[in-house]
């Protein structure tokens, strides 16, 4: 497999994410409504620090170490937080009025896709948390592609999007073991593995990903990494303030994060101590590698410039004054396009 000629990328500014899950729902509504997809959330937003989705995914292995493929654990439906079943029929059509309430049916769940929301870490008054949205990273060195014995996963040459070919896939799930980010799901109805498709049918029409367009916080930038006019290029390559999650996993993700600055900590007398960040540097290094420390300094310095009334290109990009500037040219309005029906219709 040759390297892709160009690479699409996404940058998510974690300083702006409010954990509202609009991205999650935008994705769900668009792509994962079929039978067998009930437990799938191609886009997740989890509170950090936390165990995430699937539960404890950071300890499930996969990826590469010194270029060698690492065995990984197969995440179960329970780990992902299976789709809970409710008594919808009874509540909406049972004629019981206010006497019936939505209740989970069957065994009480012990995990869900956003189970540890807002728990975070630290000790009062220095407790802290932030939100981490995740999709498939459309890696440059995708562990899923390398693991599949059926060559069913393709990294597209033209734009670097990684797609599972459902006609080739036989549901062996080696990709799920190999992906260190655990962003691949198994569809028990279709018998194939499925994951985020980077909204390729939209991208091909010049429309940014649903998760990016729907984001109320203007968190997500989209574009080609080599497009010097694209915000993603400026953030990753020019300003170098966007980093991949867990670079040590060895897959070279193409989703990048502007790390969260977080508030200042409190000292023992209860006063604010600007020298002590509330989010421990060690934790950010754990997530984004040692490069996160200079990144934090750059972002802070640019913030300071604006406080002093100076102009900062970086802050202008991150604030995203012009919404369309976030999308690297993928700024067409999907409502103006006549869409072919059944882009992903497997029937």
């Amino acid at each position: 497999m040759g390297a892709s000629k160009r690479q699409l990328a996404m940058v998510m500014d974690l300083n702006k994410c409010i954990g509202c899950q609009t991205c999650t729902i935008a994705c769900k509504r668009l792509w994962t409504r079929d039978e067998g997809m009930e437990y799938m959330w191609w886009n997740t937003v989890n509170t950090q620090p936390g165990l995430g989705t699937p539960k404890n995914w950071e300890k499930m292995g996969g990826g590469f170490k010194d270029g060698i493929a690492q065995p990984g654990q197969l995440p179960t439906k329970t780990d992902f937080g299976d789709a809970w079943k409710y008594n919808h029929e009874e509540v909406f059509y049972g004629g019981k009025g206010t006497k019936a309430h939505l209740e989970i049916q069957g065994e009480a769940p012990t995990w869900g896709p956003n189970w540890d929301e807002d728990q975070g870490g630290g000790t009062y008054p220095n407790s802290y948390f932030f939100y981490l949205p995740r999709i498939c990273n459309h890696c440059t060195n995708p562990a899923c592609v390398a693991a599949c014995p059926r060559k069913a996963i393709e990294k597209r040459e033209a734009d670097g999007i990684v797609l599972i070919n459902e006609d080739r896939c036989r549901g062996y799930r080696f990709c799920m073991e190999a992906c260190p980010y655990k962003k691949i799901y198994f569809n028990h109805e279709a018998g194939v593995s499925q994951k985020c498709i980077f909204c390729f049918p939209r991208i091909e029409q010049g429309v940014a990903n649903a998760c990016a367009r729907q984001c109320p916080g203007r968190v997500r930038f989209v574009g080609y990494l080599d497009d010097e006019n694209a915000a993603v290029h400026k953030l990753v390559h020019k300003w170098k303030v966007a980093l991949p999650l867990h670079p040590e996993y060895g897959t070279q993700p193409n989703v990048y994060y502007v790390p969260p600055i977080g508030p200042a900590g409190f000292d023992e007398t209860g006063d604010v101590d600007p020298s002590k960040p509330r989010i421990p540097n060690e934790y950010l290094v754990h997530l984004f590698g040692p490069d996160v420390l200079p990144v934090l300094e750059i972002v802070k310095a640019e913030m300071q410039k604006t406080r002093e009334g100076q102009k900062s290109e970086l802050m202008d990009i991150l604030i995203a004054y012009k919404w369309k500037d976030m999308f690297g040219g993928f700024d067409r309005d999907p409502a103006e396009i006549e869409w072919e029906k059944g882009v992903l219709d497997r029937s």
Binding site: A69, Q70, P71, G72, A146, P149, F174, E177, A178
Partner: peptide
Amino acid sequence: LQPTALIRNS
């Protein structure tokens, strides 16, 4: 004879 490194290593 397993076709990928992930499978062999696992």
